[in-house]
Write a protein that binds this DNA or RNA. Structure first.
Lengths: 230, 230
DNA sequence: TGTAAATTGAACAAAAATGAACAAAATTTA
DNA sequence: TAAATTTTGTTCATTTTTGTTCAATTTACA
């Protein structure tokens, strides 16, 4: 029994029973209380559990649903609203999409238009669009694994060299007074530049994120041609 | 019993039992603890297992090499040659990879270096490298679904703005007189620029493609620091 | 065949893991 | 509230494991 096995076992016990006492763990695993305590401290640092006086309990901190799950939520309603957004589409347009799962609802409507060119900083959208055999360009720059986005100085430079007809954006928060904002500084900057460079900008966003305000302002809604709440 | 057989056996034991102690492996394989320890270190660097105090356990990290890589991993020759290519690696390097599955053999060796920065025009390599938690930049530009590559005018401009310490390239053909060539014009141009911009360039390629010559010349081998035939 | 490189093991110093002792802090009890 | 009890964290000693270095041996290769 080494450190790793012991900690794995402790985690099993804690997760299956909701919590465990140091004294019990010590007795059942045949290690001193001191060792157990050190284990719990390590595991708490890694966010695996929460330490309390006398032992440890499960860590039920906030967790995020994976992206594929979020896409399944409210499918029907979102489809209808994406249809409304699709009314801004025309043949031959150069279109920018930012990084967002919400925008994926728009993709089916691209099929009916000819000679579109898509630019995006989302690798997920890149793949989906490519599978539809629509030419797609990705901004260059630093890859962020969490959102599947490309951002940073180079992505900004890339965008400044392009003038899309329309930008479809999604963001994290929209305050009551019309302030569109994001919690990621780099992605907020991408959005700002996309709006600057594009003739038209349309915001799509999830109603659930309404009314809040994140650290980095993207723009005010009066700069947008349309705001569609899914 | 040579190094490769021994490591294969160690991996079997670890994978079948979930873990093994150095002292036990030493006794059952009749090798000194020191040798076992060196084996484990090597195998950990390649991501095949996880070392813990006293021994090793199965690698349950979130990063897994793709199946085709793990299936090939025991082909000693490729492993050895990738190892030779890895000798060009140093801490803190800025490295370019072009679009090629061959280069994936090098990835395990990246883990042992600190502060690397990778630039590539391959989305497949981008994903693998990101999963290893190494900062990775993608060139901007047109996406080509077939090879999973980014190329075109913007990718070229992106590359010209960067000066990597070393470029690892793979290509489609290498003629007997040392002409490195490619059948895709855009990707050949990317390679040319990468060589131009990099302090050092190393070619890795599959022996099967040896002796031929494609439409677009990339460079001559005397421009390369090393040519490694897998 | 001789030389360079890789492999291996031994010795020993350095580091990690563990438990015991005890003072400090938290909790319970009176 | 104070005393008693339990739990915690610090420190130190002991044991185990690891890494470094060097020498011997084997292997690769020119």
């Amino acid at each position: 029994m080494n450190l790793n096995n012991r900690q794995k076992k402790i985690l099993q016990i804690v997760n299956s029973t909701g919590g465990a006492k140091v004294s019990d763990l010590s007795k059942s695993l045949y290690f001193s209380g001191m060792t157990i305590r050190r284990d719990l401290q390590m595991m708490e640092n890694e966010g695996l559990l929460k330490r309390v006086h006398g032992g440890a309990i499960v860590n039920d901190s906030d967790f995020q649903y994976p992206i594929w799950y979020r896409m399944e939520i409210n499918k029907e309603q979102k489809k209808k609203l994406a249809q409304r957004a699709a009314k801004h589409l025309r043949d031959g347009q150069v279109i920018f999409f930012n990084t967002s799962s919400t925008l994926a609802y728009l993709l089916p409507y691209l099929q009916q238009y000819k000679n579109l060119q898509i630019i995006t900083n989302s690798v997920h959208l890149l793949f989906m669009i490519s599978k539809m055999h629509i030419p797609c360009f990705l901004t260059g720059g630093r890859y962020n694994e969490v959102e599947g986005s490309i951002s940073g100085r180079q992505a900004e430079a890339f965008l400044r060299g392009i003038n899309p007809d329309i930008a479809f954006l999604s963001c994290e928060a929209l305050s009551p007074d019309g302030c569109v904002s994001n919690s990621n500084e780099d992605l907020a900057e991408i959005d700002r530049i996309a709006i600057e460079q594009s003739k038209t900008a349309v915001l799509l966003m999830d109603q659930s994120k309404l009314g809040e305000r994140c650290t980095y302002t993207v723009c005010h809604t009066d700069r947008l041609a349309d705001v569609i709440l899914l």
